[in-house]
Amino acid sequence: MISSRHIMTWRGVGLAAAIFVFVFLILPTAIVIIMSFGDKRDLVFPPTGFSLDLFRRFFAEPGWTQSALLSFRIAILSATLSLVMGTAAAIGLARSRFRGKGLVSLFLHSPIMIPGVAIALALYLYLNMLGIRNNDARLILGHVVMTLPFVLVTVSAGLRHIDETLETVATVMGAGLFTVFRRVTVPLLAPALTIGWLFAFVTSFDEVIVSWFLVRAGHMTLPVKMYSSIMFDISPVLAAVSTMLTGLTVFACIVMAAMQKKEA
């Protein structure tokens, strides 16, 4: 029989291992954040002083700001389109029974399982075959493919917490399908919809591989510009950009955690 002393010892070992792994994973990000506030025009660690010069350079250089605005625009539009399509697909899969339902669900979730470079190459060839040359349209379509599964998973999880009898009662009382969806389903799904949209937004904003294949010359998203900067000219502004992206991701995670707590 295992004594309480052994149990406490193993708990201590597990806690120490968890702390080690957490520090190991978070340390590179922490180093980059510290470097972004340095007072040198190069990436130096540890910094010799405190300065916001790298952040000022980011907003002063048109190339960085244009890429950031493009990423925000593409992420907002693709997340919104994914939310509409993913919500419709989730409700259809959850509220109906038909032959091949499992295959349809697997197909819609497949972008999570297929390597990103394979999807990127397929999208590149397919969009070129269709003759779609507009940069925004190419990126939005590509990002919707990558973000739709995250909305589908999130909304499907939210639907499982909704009592279907509420929708049935509303229908019996004379409400139409659209009224039931707008007045009953959407309010109950609001936390899941918000979380799904945020997941899609963050995924789209951080997407590199698909954007690299689909982006047109001179119209790079922020992650693609960061990757290009690393490949051809390591700019210290990268540290400031990484810090801001980390802050954006942390903010999105806090909002999602708050929404999940509200849903619970």
Results as ranks from 00 to 15, higher is better:
75 A>D: 09
114 I>Q: 05
36 S>Y: 10
164 E>Q: 07
130 L>M: 13
121 L>N: 06
155 V>Q: 00
119 I>G: 08
21 V>S: 01
152 L>K: 00
201 F>I: 09
220 M>Q: 11
209 I>F: 08
65 T>S: 06
201 F>D: 10
128 N>R: 09
232 F>T: 13
143 H>K: 01
252 A>C: 12
230 I>H: 15
177 L>E: 13
192 A>R: 02
164 E>R: 07
40 K>P: 04
253 C>S: 09
114 I>A: 09
168 T>S: 13
95 R>W: 02
170 A>E: 03
115 P>W: 07
127 L>R: 03
167 E>C: 06
178 F>H: 03
61 E>V: 08
16 A>S: 10
66 Q>I: 04
89 A>R: 02
2 I>P: 15
43 L>E: 07
16 A>K: 02
118 A>Y: 01
63 G>Y: 05
158 G>R: 03
103 L>Q: 07
83 L>N: 03
86 G>V: 02
41 R>N: 10
26 I>V: 10
108 L>C: 06
195 I>L: 05
187 P>Q: 09
12 G>R: 05
133 R>H: 07
255 V>S: 08
83 L>E: 05
89 A>F: 04
95 R>V: 04
57 R>C: 04
49 G>R: 03
83 L>H: 03
249 T>N: 10
113 M>Q: 07
237 V>I: 12
190 A>H: 09
45 F>S: 05
121 L>C: 04
68 A>C: 09
130 L>H: 12
86 G>R: 00
210 V>A: 08
85 M>W: 00
45 F>G: 05
221 T>N: 06
123 L>C: 07
73 R>V: 05
232 F>V: 11
51 S>R: 09
204 S>H: 07
60 A>G: 11
